[in-house]
Computed example of a mutant assay.
Amino acid sequence: MSTRDVPLATAASQVVDPEGFAAEWEAWHRAKDARLAAEHGFLAITGLHWLTAEPQHVPDAPGLWSTGPDGVLVELDEDTELVVDGAAVRGRHLFGVLPERGGVNAVWGDAVIEVARRGGHDIVRPRHPGHPLRTAFTGTPAYAPDPRWVVTGRYEPFPEPRPTTVGATVEGLRHVYDAPGRVTFRLDGRELGLTVFNGHTPGAFTALFTDATSGVTTYAANRDLRIDAPGPGGEVVLDFNRATNLPCAYTDFATCPLPPAENRLPLAVEAGEKIPRERGPVAG
């Protein structure tokens, strides 16, 4: 079967148990918020610090931090210890050259000092469990789950993955991802499409998008929709009830990518997560 033989049809008719559908969504949403608010999750980050060749003190972290051709370096005070990959380190420690979108977590007491590389720059982000953003978190507001926002679509691979440069929520920063293809689908009588990036599991995808709710009831910069690996003929399922905020929706200390320009949907996707309470009023 050709990928073009897969119909662009709604999958809502396949949902026969609305109560079960809602309960499954609630469990998924609680688990997602729990990961966000984990002891050293994104809500525990107290700052975003860009490293240079000049050694600098980083608030909420020990030592002097710098970067250079050999990678990230920290020089600790005599009585200070970090635990890196299970081993205690003291004095001068070279983390080495980090891969793009990679990182290392160094444990410091009850805190974690994240050392990472984003957009070609080395950064340090301390994560403290007692950070007020984390301790005051009460969950993410969201639209009530509705089966009508579950649709089937078709994955159309590009002949070759396309290097795709997108902006970031940090001004001047750029991210480059390989886009393996595009997902097309029909929603509210319209034929639509989203360029996708590779997901967190083999064969899966992630689609960054905005829509007519962005900046009104949902976060203005982006939302993320994860899509399981295609079935026979390239068929995929898009459940917009599971459109989530990226960390930048909650904190200014994230470097989240923006969607590709073609991923603005020309309709209101009134499904999934809304603007976090931490960012102000939520309309609707």
Rank of each mutant, 00 (worst) to 15 (best):
T67C: 05
T67L: 04
T67G: 03
G68K: 01
D70L: 11
D70C: 02
V72P: 04
L73I: 12
L73A: 05
L73R: 12
V74I: 05
E75P: 00
E75G: 00
E75I: 00
L76S: 05
L76Y: 08
D77F: 00
D77Y: 00
D77C: 00
D77T: 00
E78Y: 08
E78Q: 12
E78P: 04
D79T: 10
D79W: 08
D79E: 11
D79Y: 05
T80H: 05
T80R: 08
E81Q: 09
E81N: 01
E81K: 04
L82G: 11
L82V: 10
L82H: 07
V83C: 00
V83R: 04
V84N: 03
V84P: 06
V84E: 07
V84A: 06
G86D: 09
A87N: 10
A87F: 06
A87H: 08
V89D: 02
V89N: 07
R90T: 15
R90N: 13
G91P: 14
G91E: 15
G91Q: 15
G91H: 15
F95Q: 10
G96K: 10
G96F: 07
V97P: 09
V97G: 09
L98Y: 05
L98T: 05
L98Q: 02
L98D: 03
L98C: 01
L98P: 02
L98I: 08
L98G: 02
P99W: 02
P99R: 11
P99A: 08
R101A: 07
R101L: 03
R101F: 01
G102H: 06
G102S: 11
G102D: 03
G103M: 13
G103E: 10
G103H: 13
V104T: 15
N105Q: 13
A106Q: 11
W108C: 06
W108I: 10
G109E: 12
G109V: 12
G109M: 08
D110R: 04
A111S: 14
V112L: 09
I113T: 02
I113D: 02
E114K: 15
E114F: 14
V115F: 03
A116H: 01
A116F: 04
R117E: 15
R117Q: 15
R118D: 04
G119H: 08
G120S: 01
G120L: 02
H121E: 07
H121P: 00
H121K: 09
D122G: 10
D122H: 13
D122A: 12
D122W: 01
